[in-house]
């Protein structure tokens, strides 16, 4: 009883409340807001430009909001913009990107999760060596491996096809994804694995019935990582596909940087936004998981 009274009498508790508008705080928030404007500016400019008509763009100010909102540039970018002789817009590139993305995700994550599982619970002689090579491989410039892969794909008859590009994404996604899954599976208690072994479960049974259901969060992280990575790829798309199978980023670049015809900046910006839409939606919808994915990517090697 006496104790509590002395405690309550000993003055206010907890940290001293800070003034919200101290000079340091104004400086801090001022800086952050200014920097935020720099980061937001390109997105804003793209949106307003894509909603203006060409006459308004020629006369006016890139930062000004559109006086007359028009969705015509978006329609044109999606369905009519020309690359070379094809004038069916970005919709074709979008379709190609989707057809590249889905099998690439399934294959790369499937392979990498099995790798990670084997590397953490079924180590064999040399497994760590292969893993080390894989991680070092993540740092080798892609340019060094581009041409040998052209030869491999040609031998397999996959050069220029979507299947070939899927294979390339699986190969180059493997180091980081394998690392991700290996670290995750290694954190699953060994006892669980041993118990399953005693009960007679084999390699695949443990993988599908124990590991897979436990690893769902890391699968989501891997999917986020791969969707943005594969969607944003330009280099592999431009080298391993042909115009009919170009992914969206390559087609976008061809539309905007084509030398023929009058430049239609509003259509270009609508096309750019359309291409950026998928990763942006993933980013804003996934929040913390995206950060977790890139943090895992950051510690590669």
């Amino acid at each position: 009883m006496a104790d509590t009274t002395t405690n309550t009498l000993s003055g206010p508790r907890g940290p001293k409340p800070k003034k919200t508008f101290s000079r340091a705080n104004i400086f801090l928030y001022g800086t952050l807001i200014m920097v935020s404007l720099y980061y937001l500016l390109p997105l804003y400019v793209m949106v307003v430009t894509s909603l203006k008509g060409m006459p308004e763009i020629r006369m006016g100010n890139v930062f000004g909001p559109p006086m007359e909102v028009t969705f015509q540039p978006w329609v044109k970018a999606w369905a009519e913009a020309c690359t070379g002789i094809n004038c069916d817009g970005l919709s074709r590139g979008f379709g190609n990107s989707v057809r590249i993305l889905i099998p690439s995700i399934l294959l790369s994550i499937g392979v990498a999760s099995i790798n990670g599982y084997a590397l953490s619970h079924w180590k064999f002689k040399g497994s760590e060596t292969f893993f080390t090579i894989l991680i070092i491989g993540a740092f080798i410039p892609y340019q060094t491996m581009l041409y040998p892969i052209v030869i491999l794909l040609r031998e397999m008859g996959l050069m220029g096809s979507i299947g070939g590009l899927v294979l390339v994404h699986t190969i180059f996604g493997m180091p980081i994804l394998t690392l991700l899954f290996r670290n995750y599976f290694a954190s699953i208690p060994e006892e669980l694995f041993k118990a399953a072994r005693v009960d007679g479960a084999g390699f695949w049974q443990i993988y599908f019935q124990i590991m897979l259901p436990m690893a769902l969060p890391i699968f989501v992280v891997a999917i986020i990582l791969q969707v943005t990575g594969i969607w944003n790829d330009f280099l592999f798309g431009v080298i391993y596909t042909k115009p009919a199978t170009y992914p969206m980023t390559v087609q976008l670049n061809n539309i905007v940087n084509s030398v023929q015809g009058v430049k239609e900046y509003n259509v270009n910006m609508a096309a750019t936004l359309l291409t950026g839409m998928v990763p942006l939606i993933i980013y804003f919808a996934s929040g913390k998981l995206f950060v977790r994915g890139i943090a895992a990517g950051a510690v590669k090697g």
């Binding site: 980061y39 944003n232 330009f234 990763p279 942006l280 804003f284």
Partner: peptide
């Protein structure tokens, strides 16, 4: 600050 990182270099 992080959203540009989600975009393609082409964009």
């Amino acid at each position: 600050f992080l959203y540009p990182f989600a975009l393609s270099f082409v964009v």
